[in-house]
Design a protein around this nucleic acid. Structure first.
Length: 598
RNA sequence: GGGUUGGUAGCUCAGUGGUAGAGCAGCGGCCUUUUAAGCCGUUGGUCGUGGGUUCGAGUCCCACCCGACCCA
């Protein structure tokens, strides 16, 4: 945001020069007769003939100066079209002004369509108007904008220079539009409920707190949409939904933004089974409308590149840090052999990295793993000899081998193409059956202490304070959920996890719910909603844990007035977009992700 | 919160203690069908911030700020 920059000063000087000439560089209005992309497409399709007049407006994104004529690229949301200006058409003065236009300026042009020698549809400019002068230079011409911090803080620059980013956000908009269309067609009514609540409920999460001056009381930003929507079921709105922002005062990560968008929908006289059908149909509808397919492939170039870069650093670190001590411990020849082996592994890694972009990422990952196995072999071979001479060195080798192992595991996650197949019907499996499948058929027959021990054996992190059901849930979240790439309805979860759902008559230790997992993430929960006010109070009191969380008494009063049996769902819109649009980070599907203020 | 890693020109990046660089963008010149146009010339830096070590720091050390990734 440097104000003294020479490039900015130059542009301001140009602005002043224009004003001197009596030209207003910030116009109120110019009316194009079509979009840039539209004009190009219509010309290509023969709908506009050679010589057809057009009026277009857009931002200048490139220019090729030929002396007495020049080509510019004009870009608007629809796309890009080339324009061509000649000195003889614009006149000496007009051409002089045109020549001093800057990249990123907005202009409007009128002229006629023609095709250049190389076949490019082009507008021969007859008149032009400067619509908005850009006083700062745009980011790179063909590198795009790479700096993640600027991309997130100044998203407009990201959108301006990275077409792929623009595409993602246009598709996010299309996804939300199709969700509305789908629910509307099924007779759901869209409503809006308060974001500021005296008692935040409907989920277990830390809320943001704010204060209302006139009312003299505190409010919380909502953490879920659930409780107001259920009040509407009581009121007789039988099919309702809301798409809105929730706020949770918790950590930020690849999967979490403090404010995120949820869809919640409730249907009177539905249950968790009818809601599974809804979720399945809704997501398939959206995928087909927006993507035109139910088979979604995710590129893995970025995680593979990151894993290889990390592995290269490990390799370099090892050869630099051990060389001297290794010479002392095992002698020059052996040390040289070791370094040569590591060097070979390094070369193979670099070679693999170079093929990224050409070869499929999963092939690259496989080659990188082979390279790392060479390095691990070399470490193993020399470790025994080295450890006789030097204790610290042996520790160093052990640590290095462990880090290489970690790198291999990271790469192994990407050795198969990542494809999500949304073709129906989606798998439905009971929570307990899935846990038995992955953690042992006898899982629920074990004593709590045995379960805890096996969970640790399986690699889950178990805190001492965990209750028994939390141990099972940790196994589910850490070991099972990440493997559920294709859509899976995990039904009948443990009742302790979900206080707002009805118990399952066939197994009262579970509730009639599902968690729909896709892409290794929970995307959509759905319940047969609890409508027994007495039962609901008990469950909430048990969850509330006494004083720490206040009960929403008005919600319980509403239930006492009678809520019809109902099914409800939530869908995390951001995660749905990540899954459908192949984005690994929630920040890449939220226009303005939360960052710390500068 | 912890680990790893990054911040150098408008952008993308080099720069392993000894005169701060390249490409693109910019500015000037040549060129009336170019398209990552080309050719010639040229401007541009608080090296994230603040300390320290040193004859000398973009580079080494310490603290802090802001990102990214992984973990909690």
């Amino acid at each position: 945001m440097d104000e003294t920059n020479a490039l900015i000063a130059q542009r301001r000087a140009k602005l002043d020069a224009l004003r001197q000439k009596g030209i207003d560089p910030f116009r109120n209005k110019f009316t194009p007769d079509r979009d840039c992309g539209e004009a190009r497409a219509q010309f290509e399709a023969g709908l506009l003939a050679e010589g057809a007049p057009v009026a277009l407006a857009g931002r200048i994104t490139a220019h090729r100066d030929m002396g007495k004529s020049q080509f510019l690229d004009l870009k608007d949301q629809s796309g890009r079209i080339q324009i061509y200006a000649q000195k003889q058409t614009l006149g000496d003065e007009g051409y002089e002004i045109f020549k001093h236009l800057d990249l990123a300026d907005f202009i409007g042009v009128t002229g006629t369509l023609f095709r250049t020698r190389s076949g490019e549809p082009t507008v021969k400019v007859e008149r032009f108007t400067i619509l908005a002068k850009a006083l700062r230079p745009p980011p790179a011409k063909w590198h795009g904008l790479e700096d993640t911090e600027i991309r997130y803080r100044q998203r407009y620059l990201d959108l301006m220079s990275n077409d792929e980013v623009k595409r993602v956000f246009l598709q996010r908009s299309a996804i939300i539009k199709e969700i509305r269309a789908f629910l509307d067609a099924r007779g759901y009514v869209e409503v809006e409920t308060p974001m500021m609540q005296a008692i935040p409920g409907g989920a277990a999460a830390r809320p943001f707190k704010t204060h209302h001056n006139a009312l003299g009381c505190d409010f919380y930003l909502r953490i879920a949409l659930e409780l107001p929507l259920k009040r509407l079921l009581v009121g007789g709105l039988d099919k309702v939904f809301e798409i809105g922002r929730n706020f949770r005062n918790e950590g930020l990560s690849r999967k979490h933004n403090p404010e995120f968008t949820m869809l919640e929908a409730y249907q009177a006289f539905g249950d968790y089974e009818s809601m599974m059908e809804l979720v399945e149909s809704l997501i398939c509808h959206v995928a087909e409308k927006v993507l035109g397919t139910l088979i979604i492939e995710h590129k893995q170039d970025q995680p593979v590149a990151a894993a290889i870069t990390a592995a290269l650093r490990e390799l370099d670190e090892l050869s630099f840090s051990t060389m001297g001590n290794l010479m002392k411990a095992v002698g020059g020849d052996a040390a040289a052999a070791f370094v040569a082996d590591i060097g070979k592994a390094r070369e193979a890694l670099v070679a693999a990295e170079r093929t990224l972009g050409q070869a499929p990422a999963e092939e690259v990952a496989k080659r990188a793993i082979e390279a790392l196995l060479v390095a691990i072999g070399a470490v193993g071979l020399h470790q025994a000899a080295a450890s006789r001479g030097d204790r610290n060195l042996a520790d160093h080798f052990t640590a290095a081998a462990a880090r290489f192992d970690a790198s291999v595991r990271a790469l192994e996650r990407h050795t198969a193409p990542k494809v999500i197949n949304l073709t129906r019907p989606w798998r439905r499996v009971k929570y307990k059956d899935l846990v038995r499948e992955r953690a042992g058929a006898d899982w629920f027959d074990l004593s709590p202490a045995e379960r805890r021990r096996r969970a640790v054996e399986l690699g889950a992190e178990i805190a001492d304070a965990y209750e028994d059901f939390e141990v099972t849930q940790a196994v589910f979240e850490k070991l099972i959920e990440p493997t559920l790439i294709n859509p899976t309805f995990v039904t009948h979860c443990l009742k302790e996890l979900i206080p707002l759902a009805k118990l399952s008559p066939e197994d009262p230790s579970t509730v009639e719910v599902f968690e729909c997992c896709i892409n290794g993430q929970e995307i959509s929960p759905g319940y047969t909603e609890q409508n027994d006010p007495i039962e609901q109070r008990e469950r909430l009191e048990h969850q509330a844990g006494g004083e720490q969380q206040k009960l929403d008494e008005d919600f319980l009063v509403a239930l006492e007035h009678g809520m019809p049996p109902a099914g409800g769902i939530g869908i995390g819109i951001d995660r749905l977009c990540m899954m459908l649009l192949g984005q690994d980070s929630i920040r890449d599907v939220i226009l303005f992700p939360q960052l710390k203020p500068r």
